[in-house]
Design a protein around this nucleic acid. Sequence first.
DNA 1: ATCCTATCCTGTAGGC
DNA 2: TGCCTACAGGATAGGA
Length: 284
Amino acid sequence: MPELPEVETLRRMLESHVPGRTVAAARRSRARLHVASRGGGLGALAGRRVDRIERRGKYLLFQFAGDVTLLSHLGMSGRWLFHPPGPVEPLTHVHAVIEFTDGSKLRFQDPRRFGQLRVLDARRLDADASIRRLGRDPLAPPLTADELADLGRGSTASVKAVLLDQHRIAGIGNIYASEILHRARVDPRRRAGRLSRAEWAAVAAEIPAVLGEAIDGLGTTFSMYRTLWGEPGGFGERLRVYDRAGEPCLTCGTPIRRIVQAQRATYYCPTCARVGRSRGRQQT
DNA sequence: ATCCTATCCTGTAGGC
DNA sequence: TGCCTACAGGATAGGA
């Protein structure tokens, strides 16, 4: 479900409502998430005040007073929902509840259970292998064409696989990889090591453009994703290729093609990608 | 090292 | 209506 724009949307909403609140009780339900918690249960959060909410790639980090971090990954279907004081509707697949002293609460819901929740020592986040191996955030500051070319240099993997590799770039997922490459007019099947400097420059320009617009739209709701208030994101109607197989390209009218790479759907316009291939050879 | 495949889990949409 | 299959925004272990 969630890629960088969805997680960042959640982070901003959490950041404006949660810091300053103190945990009265936090518990994890019996139904376990696929990746088991390490470093103790959520009980360690009781009595602690939330200082701030951070993001690393697709991970959310709740920073609590006393150097305690709650790490959360939404997997494919995870949601954080915020509830003001008062009764809440019952929900299935709720794996964790954090109650604050004022009666408000956060619930973590994740039907597919690919999500993650871990309590970590804030001073030693790198002790967590998944955090330690994360590549750099593509937005802060924006990746340059040179950095991207370095990340892809010598790689025989597809350029789409490189964009999706969280050890290289932390935050781009399956929807935005297709959108970025389409707008950059790069064929997703190209081997990353073969891209020209001009192609990397186009990709570098589209990464912040696409991710930024998606953040402005509060993310893309394809099916599961909801904001902190349970609302869908608005960027879905601005997708140009994802889930549009057979529909006309908004640029040239060619039917959008769906292929499978590494068992995951990729969408692209074959005409736009071919036009982009010749860039740089036709300038003055 | 790098790349690719299979796997974890549940819900939903579409074909019959 | 029900049954079946295919597919879904993720990361990761293990094999080539």
